[in-house]
Design a protein around this nucleic acid. Structure first.
Lengths: 146, 146
DNA sequence: CTCAGTGCAAAGGATTTGCATGCCG
DNA sequence: CGGCATGCAAATCCTTTGCACTGAG
């Protein structure tokens, strides 16, 4: 896990590369995302950032995604979710509750990751897709919904 | 892969279990989904079924999903996608184009699946999630978008 | 000064729902 | 007959966008 201060430096640098600024709103969003252990919905981001208007949040998230600082996670729930880009946090997976949409992060042992990654790269070679990275989620029922 | 006629029988049975009927529209949707090798968007379903109104399609897909006949696949694109439930087709994964949202199915060697599944069940035990099944997708650029 | 960022309000667009009608059991 | 299914149209609601204003460089 990259330390928090570095995250801001990297975010600033990536934005600069596309001629954008690392403003207070954007820094606040990154801070909020760095502080949790699961992807946040927009309402959650707004709650963590009183005073941040929806439209600014959406717009800034789009910019941050474009710059490779955040990643949009489509979980199937009503809202999209956002998390820091993998190289700003660490490779991980999600538990997704199929009933309420709750999400939780988890990681796999390195050797399993390696096996999966190898098999996937092999599979990818048989198709016309390129620049592939994987996304492995678990779907089930969370404690509340069981 | 279960043969086509069985799919309809199973679909009918599952609907009956929830006091719903296997109508012409629903059968048409299932037929269309059984005929492709990738999840379909709603527009694609409508195109494959001239005369089927949007609202009926959405409503029937919801019913079919509820009955466990189809599965909604959230690919991140503009439209949701739908495919037959796994036990009506077979366990598979998706290549997803991060630019245009195109999707293609693929499968992994059985031994890799087994390894992954074992590791995931172990990981799942450490959380409060239950009834877990995995969902492994590859994200990259399709031939058109490279 | 300039131009990206901001915030409000309004628009967009996929999906859902109300309601009257049709049809299967 | 009774109740689910249908289809049209209208409503929802997450997300995007237009526009005037502010602020950093």
């Amino acid at each position: 896990m990259v330390v928090a201060v570095e995250v801001h430096d990297i975010a600033a640098a990536r934005l600069r590369d596309t001629d954008q600024r690392y403003t207070r709103n954007r820094r606040a969003i990154v801070t909020a995302l760095a502080a949790t252990d699961r992807p946040l919905t927009l309402p959650e981001l707004l709650k963590a950032n009183k005073g941040l208007p929806q439209s600014s949040a959406y717009r800034n998230l789009a910019v941050l995604e474009e710059a490779g600082v955040v990643r949009r996670v489509v979980s199937g729930g009503e809202f999209a979710r956002y998390e820091l880009a993998e190289d700003l946090s660490e490779h991980h997976h999600h538990f997704i509750c199929s009933t309420c949409g709750a999400i939780e992060d988890f990681t796999l042992p390195a050797d399993v990751e390696a096996t999966v990654e190898r098999a996937l790269q092999r599979a990818a070679r048989r198709t016309r897709f390129a620049g592939v990275h994987h996304q492995l989620d678990l779907v089930g029922l969370c404690a509340n919904c069981q």
